[in-house]
Design a protein around this nucleic acid. Sequence first.
DNA 1: ATGGCTGGTAGAACCAGA
Length: 264
Amino acid sequence: MTQKVRITSWNINSVRARIGIVEEFLKKESPDILCLQETKVADDLFPRAMFEQLGYVHMAINGQKMHHGVATLSKIALTDIEKFDWQANGEARHIGVALPNGARLENVYIPAGGDIADRDENPKFGQKLDFFGRMIQWSKTIDKPTIVTGDFNVAPLPSDVWNHKQLLKVVSHTPIEVDIMDALKAAGNWTDVGRKFIKDPERLFTWWSYRAKDWRASDRGRRLDHMWITPDLLSKVLSHEVSEYCRDWEKPSDHIPITSEFAF
DNA sequence: ATGGCTGGTAGAACCAGA
C-alpha cells in the first residue's frame, strides 16, 4: 500500500513574526511535513500551539535565540532525531528525522556566507565552504533513502538567477560555491528534485530581496532553496512545485515554500 | 539600482540576512 507524502521546505525568516501566514499556507496546501529554516526562536518559545491544532503534532525542533534555527513539523511520526553541527560552532542549522518507511529527512540551513567570496578576507565565506565540506563527508556515509532539503544559500545554474553574468561575483552564485555544491551533489549521488521537474533553462526562483520596490516587476530572484534525494527515491518522487504566490502575502518571508510529493 | 528592507533584541549611529 503506497502512501503519498507531501513535504514542504520554507525559510520563514522568523516563525513567530509569520505564524499567521504559516497557518494560511498549511490550511491551503496541507503538506504532511513542513521543514522550516530561520525560525529565529529558542526551543522553549517555539509557537507549538498552531501546529498542534492543525494536526502537526510531531515536532523536531533545533532553535536558538535570535538567529538561525530549524524545525520539522509533521502529521506523521518522526523518530531518530539528530542534530548535526556542520558548521562546528554550535549554530542551529540542521535537524534530521526518520520517517515511518525508514527514509530520512534532513532539514538544513546552510550559512549565507557574508559578502566577500574569499575565505581569507571573509571568515563567514570559509565557514560556508567548510559546512559544504562536512556535508560532503556525511554524504559518503549515507546508507538509507534520504531527502535533504532547506535553504542551501546557493543558486547553482545560470537559470537559477535573474542575471548570471551580474551575479558571478555575488555570494550565492560564485563559481567557487557552485563547484563545492556540485562536489556535494556528486558525493551523495544526489538528484536535484527542483530541476528534475522544472528543467533548466526554465526560470526557477525561490527568493527575492525585500529591497526591491516591486519584487514581481523587477523579478530579481534566485533559487536558494532546494530538495535533493538519493537514487533509491528517484522512482518515488512525483512532483515539485514552488509557491510563488506566498511572496505576495502581507509581511511575507523573502523565501517561498517548495513542495514535493512522494509515493512511499 | 546589491541595498532602497526586515526581524530580534536592546533600548543602537545594533547585527545579520543574501
